[in-house]
Design a protein around this nucleic acid. Structure first.
Lengths: 147, 147, 147, 147
DNA sequence: GTGGTCTAGACCACT
DNA sequence: GTGGTCTAGACCACC
């Protein structure tokens, strides 16, 4: 399963679901137009309350990440154009500043963090490739891009 | 004041205080051995509940960022050697992965994020320099900034 | 086609059909006595479940907007005299009040809304003219009445 | 009470609460910075489930209409600058078009609707004045603005 | 005290 | 079958 949840984490479960779906899309495991499990299916799969999953799905819909077709199911959105772009860009910069602060207290200079970030990116790219290869549905989406 | 708090933020106030102190240290505004305001002083200054400030200070002490000397006050720790390094390094990497996911949904490629990160670092370096220049070197706590 | 439906909208599809038919009539694309597609035809055309179309047609019939002639087809009603006029007038006024509230939060004064409404009316009138010119079917039914 | 709810309406209760708060603000009954009832208070007052009220409050917060201060209560936002302005403006125009369609079937020409709208505005202005006069707290906010 | 999250179980509208 | 809404009752973090 491309989605896992840790009920003991301090991060709300619904937020974990939101992040998990976003991650699966970013990794290429889910592609535009793919159907994702219904609320009830996912609730059974992860042994969660359907309401919890519903809350996550609503949040994802609000962010234009998925699209709900009443009575038929839920799908990964076609053109995931984010709404409040500025706000979220600012959040990204704040997170980067947090990295600098946290790094300083771990005695990591900005250059160290830059190197670390590069490593994370490379590892990510490799995983993404795998995600493409053994993704759902067999040969539905290619994986022939260079890394 | 080198510390500000937004009561309307979704981030807990005590967490904002923790982050604020860490940031001030990382920026060079506070240095090892500097005295920081007492719980009551800070509570008055920021109009917070003393319990809230106390909780933040506890957290900072647990992370070896500050040291409380009974009856004399609280000081920035000499050698802020982090305890649970492994755990926090992992958290940093997770945060970087989150940047990749969020960036993907904002149509920012890893390279874009790398550039963005570099910008943030540069801006940070500039601010840090200023922090050094007109830092709290003179009296108890400086407050001569324009408002 | 003078009717389009968005399955991803939060507005029920049957309601979209109802509104669509009413709009076509108001625009002059459909006129009194015109034949409209059968339930099955429309369902095929829009790839909808026939039940959904049937529900829409029922609603339209209840509002005296269309008339079903058993075995012969469905037609735009002659004298679309509304049944519950009071109720619907009240609904119109409520909608106008909603416009004022929503406008206030968008910093639009009532005068601004009035201007905006005038613009919408003008645009509407222009479209309506076009609807007249290149109406459906090419001369099958005239609809050059004044309103 | 400046908020009423009809449990038998087809409009979701939480939506009624959202609209009600917005209306109260637009009418001047609630002003920037005013405290609004806590979730539990309002739930008791309207005999609703707290979760229902919470959902409404979250929606209002997302629209920047209210601000939540943890542990202290909820307040009408200072600078209610709406986020997705374009989207909401478009919704307003669509609503105005709906008025034209609905008016046509009620045999109301656009000019009639314009007149009707003017009436609604005037009535609204009068009510707003009253709302100011016998608002909460007596003379806390003035009501001497032109109408 | 406040709001935030989660579960359980129910009913409804839509397709 | 799908998602949307509501209730009831519980636990938790924060202030």
């Amino acid at each position: 399963m491309w989605l896992q949840v840790d009920p003991r984490s301090s991060i709300p479960i619904y937020q974990q679901v939101v992040d998990g779906v976003k991650t699966a899309i970013a990794k290429g495991i889910l592609a535009s137009g793919d159907r994702i499990p219904s609320i009830r299916e996912l609730a059974v799969e992860l042994t969660l309350n359907p309401n919890t999953v519903a809350k996550a799905y609503q949040e994802l819909e609000r962010h234009r990440v998925i699209e709900v077709v009443r009575g038929r199911g839920t799908y990964v959105a076609k053109a995931p154009s984010p709404p409040n772009l500025e706000e979220r860009l600012q959040q990204i910069e704040e997170t980067m500043q947090w990295l600098l602060v946290e790094g300083h207290h771990l005695k990591l200079a900005p250059e160290d963090l830059l190197v670390l970030f590069r490593n994370v990116i490379n590892r990510w790219a490799r995983n993404r490739e795998e995600g493409h290869r053994d993704g759902p549905g067999g040969g539905d989406h290619q994986s022939d891009e260079e890394v």
